[in-house]
Design a protein around this nucleic acid. Structure first.
Lengths: 240, 240
DNA sequence: ACAAAAGTGTTGGTGTTACACCCATGG
DNA sequence: CCATGGGTGTAACACCAACACTTTTGT
């Protein structure tokens, strides 16, 4: 078969799943992403997004769940599909003339709670949280995937209640505000209005419990009421 | 190889690309989607989204472009990736026990200008525009894909200048308003404010040319200035 | 040990801006 | 008859100020 004929032949694919897993360290106001150091020969010892290849009988989302649960133990998890990167020659395992098998990556976007997340298989620090600003060069096109995930995170934060998948069950209004400022940047809204607007919407329940963090007046602990949020589902701009 | 062993084996995929191609018939205020009647044995004569399988050396987007250019000739085109559907058993060509090859669909979202779009290969009406409300049951999971694309369309319309990929180069402000009402529904904004707000933003250029459509005062024709829009890129809620 | 100061959470007020609704005018 | 433009009331937000409750500091 010559090259011209080969161009008309259907490509055979292996499908990989790569996860962009975000978390927020509220204490230090840091946005974190989970990276793993590759044990495989290819890109050996380079940092990358945690990923795997899809097995027989496994859905894409199941593969995403599997690789996630191998790296980290969580109680809470938000997971959604991000984007599919599939140009030829994005994976060095492909032969240069595009004969043979192609590699395609379906990326997933995940949020976990930093305090509850327990890193597994952390031998020799091969699985670590990285500050988003300090992410090194990654294997494959994973920097591009990460950028895309970061953008999605900022967008979703504005209309979707994903902040509550990052925060613990009980949180102060300042905690919530801090999540927004650490992810979206300092200048996005006034705290005073942020407070009163969200409280008026009625899906934040004051538990009357108080916490003191260092000096200052103790803050009320709130929790998110998913049912009360239902009317605002997919309405744009609930937050900010 | 028994079933348990097989579960650990990497799946082999063929990758398909399916396009959700939207257009708006401004004259009749109709949102349209392009459907094709399948010539293949599988799902023969059922309506479906135009799609194809990815060939050797071809990127996903190239495949999307290819299938589009086979069905329709356009001057202008907006194209972006939509979602990847890849569960096992979504395609009847897969064997029921998930041995053998899997089929995965990367869907793309496209907008074309109705007046300029010329349907090709329209023998026996096998390629047609369908009103979104009248779409029949489609092959595979294409109804689901279409729903997802429709949702994306409505979302993007609010912050992205995609309306100008639907409208001709020159349009009246009422044309623009009609695009929004036919896609988003009647009750989304006041025409008077819609007008003045968009004009104040400065990316709509009045060409001073007038058109009379039936009775009434002639309307000014405007054109979209992409450069002047740049500052609003990715700013939420420019429109509506 | 007590009082003052400082720090943080909470609440309310004011001016500006954007929008819904309505009406007048022009071709 | 429809495009265009303007005018008014309301609601939301930015900015600012006051107050409440606690820890820290000074003597």
């Amino acid at each position: 078969m010559n090259l011209a004929e080969n161009k008309l032949v259907l490509a055979d694919f292996k499908v990989g799943v790569d996860n962009v897993i975000f978390s927020v360290d509220s204490q230090h106001h840091r946005l974190l992403v989970l990276l793993v150091k590759r044990p495989e020969k290819l890109f050996n010892n380079q940092w990358s997004l945690p990923g795997t290849l899809v097995r027989n009988g496994e859905s894409l989302e199941e593969a995403a769940q599997r690789i996630l649960s191998e790296k980290i133990r969580v109680n809470n998890l938000y997971l959604e599909q991000l984007y599919t990167f599939g140009g030829p020659n994005r994976d060095p395992r492909e032969s240069p003339n595009s004969f043979g098998v192609r590699y395609l990556s379906v990326s997933y976007f995940a949020l976990v709670r930093f305090e509850e997340a327990e890193l597994l298989t952390n031998n020799h620090n091969r699985t670590t949280w990285y500050r988003i600003q300090k992410v090194p060069q990654l294997a494959f096109d994973h920097n591009q995937i990460l950028d895309y995930g970061y953008q999605r995170l900022r967008n979703k934060l504005e209309y979707s209640p994903i902040a509550f998948d990052i925060l613990p069950d009980l949180f102060t209004l300042n905690d919530l505000y801090q999540v927004y400022t650490t992810i979206l940047g300092e200048n996005f809204a006034d705290y005073s209005n942020f407070r009163s607007r969200l409280l008026k919407l009625g899906f934040l329940i004051d538990t009357e419990k108080k916490v003191s963090r260092g000096a200052g007046r103790p803050a009320s602990l709130y929790r998110f009421d998913a049912e009360a949020f239902a009317p605002f589902k997919d309405k744009p701009f609930v937050f900010v």
